[in-house]
C-alpha cells in the first residue's frame, strides 16, 4: 500500500443533513479514480470489507474559486493554508470542500492532491475537484479499465463560496499550534529555526521536492534539514529525475540534507528515535499537514507549516524566509 493514494474526484451529491444511505462502495486499486474520498474508522473499514457498503451523511458543499495565473512563488500549500486560515480549522466541519477556478485547473495532479488532502484540516469530510483532461490522462496512465466521469449538479446548493485572485496572494505559513493560525510569510520572516522538514503526503511528493530543489540546488542548508519521500515510488523517482545533470536525490544530499526512507516520518511524531522527530523546544518549518502541540513528537516544539518553496528558502538561511527572496 502506498501512502499517497489520494484520488482527486468530483462532487456528485446534493447537500443536506441527516441523510443516510448504505451505499455500494467501489473499492478501486491503486491508481484508479474514486469520485469521492473521505476518512473512515475501523468499524467502517470492516463493514466495507465484509459487505462493500458504507453509510454516509451527505455533506453540504463549500466552494473555493481560485482565479488568475499562479505566480512561481506560490504552491497549492499556500492556497489551502489560506483557505484554512479564512474559515478556521473547524470551519468546514462535515462539509465537502470543492476547489475550482483557472488557477486550480492549471495545477498538476500532485498539486491538486495537496488541496484536496488538506480539506480535513478545516474539518472537511472531503476535498473535491471536478475532473478535467489532466484527470483523465492521470487515470489512463494508470489503468486500461473504462471509467465514467461524474460531475456536480448544475443547481447544487452551496453554503459558502469564496473567490481568490491568486495574483494578489502571498506565500503563507500556519504558525504554532493550529493549521488555521495563518500569517503571511513576511509577518514571520526572520523567525529563528532549529530544523526544516520536507515530507508527508502533502509535502513529500516528487513535485514538492522538485520545487524545493529549485532553491536548494548548489546551496548548503544552515539548519538540520530532513527529506522524507512520501512513498517508495517518490523515493525511486528522486534518484532518476535529473536536475542539471544531478539526480534530485543528490541535490539534497549535496546541500547537506538528511535523507530518510519513504514513510510518514516525523509528521505524526512517533517513537523517540523517529527520523526527523522534534525534541524539546525546537522550532521547525515543515511541509507537513498539522501543527498541533506535540504533533511532531515534542509537546514543547513549535511547528510552522509552509510550502516546499518556503521551507527550502528557510532551510538555507536558518530563519523563516520569503521564497521570493530565494527565487530571483
Amino acid at each position: 500500500m502506498q501512502h499517497v493514494v489520494q484520488i482527486p474526484g468530483n462532487r456528485n451529491l446534493r447537500g443536506g443533513r441527516n441523510c443516510k444511505r448504505l451505499i455500494d462502495v467501489i473499492l478501486h486499486g491503486r491508481g484508479n479514480i474514486q469520485p469521492f474520498s473521505a476518512g473512515i474508522g475501523n468499524s467502517d473499514a470492516a463493514l466495507i470489507m465484509g459487505t462493500g457498503k458504507i453509510w454516509v451523511r451527505i455533506p453540504e458543499t463549500m466552494r473555493f474559486v481560485f482565479e488568475g495565473e499562479l505566480p512561481p512563488y506560490l504552491m497549492a500549500k499556500d492556497l489551502i493554508l489560506t483557505v484554512i486560515g479564512d474559515i478556521g480549522f473547524d470551519g468546514g466541519t462535515y462539509c465537502a470542500l470543492e476547489f475550482t477556478g483557472t488557477a486550480v485547473y492549471d495545477l498538476s495532479m500532485e498539486e491538486r492532491m495537496t488541496l484536496t488532502n488538506m480539506a480535513i484540516e478545516a474539518g472537511g469530510k472531503n476535498g473535491i475537484i471536478e475532473p478535467d483532461e489532466k484527470t483523465f490522462e492521470y487515470v489512463r496512465s494508470r489503468t486500461n479499465a473504462s471509467f465514467e466521469p461524474v460531475y456536480g449538479d448544475e443547481d447544487s446548493k452551496l453554503i459558502l463560496e469564496r473567490a481568490y485572485d491568486v495574483t494578489c496572494m502571498e506565500p503563507v505559513v500556519a504558525k504554532p499550534h493550529r493549521p488555521d493560525n495563518r500569517a503571511g510569510v513576511t509577518e514571520v520572516s526572520g523567525t529563528k529555526l532549529d530544523k526544516a522538514y520536507l515530507g508527508s503526503c502533502t509535502g513529500g511528493k516528487l513535485e514538492d521536492f522538485q520545487a524545493a530543489a529549485q532553491i536548494i540546488k548548489g546551496e548548503e542548508v544552515r539548519v538540520d534539514t530532513y527529506v522524507v519521500p512520501s512513498s517508495t515510488e517518490v523515493s525511486e523517482a528522486m534518484r532518476t529525475t535529473m536536475v542539471d545533470g544531478v539526480s534530485l536525490w543528490d541535490v539534497f544530499v549535496n546541500a547537506g540534507c538528511q535523507m530518510g526512507h519513504a514513510s510518514c516520518g516525523a509528521c505524526l511524531g512517533g517513537p523517540i528515535d523517529t527520523f526527523g522527530r522534534m525534541q524539546g523546544s525546537e522550532v521547525v518549518i515543515s511541509t507537513t499537514n498539522r501543527n498541533f502541540p506535540g504533533r511532531m513528537g515534542s509537546n514543547e516544539a513549535s511547528i510552522y507549516l509552509a510550502s516546499p518553496l518556503t521551507v527550502a528558502a528557510s532551510a538555507l538561511s536558518g530563519v523563516i524566509t520569503d521564497p521570493r527572496e530565494a527565487l530571483v
Partner: peptide, 26 residues
Amino acid sequence: LNPLGDVAEILRAGNVFEYARQAGLI
C-alpha cells in the same frame, strides 16, 4: 435537539454490524 435522523436506526440496532445483519447484508 436536532433529530438523530437515519442514524437512529443504526443506534437502535446496537451498531452498524447489527444494522447490516438486520438489513440482510451479513
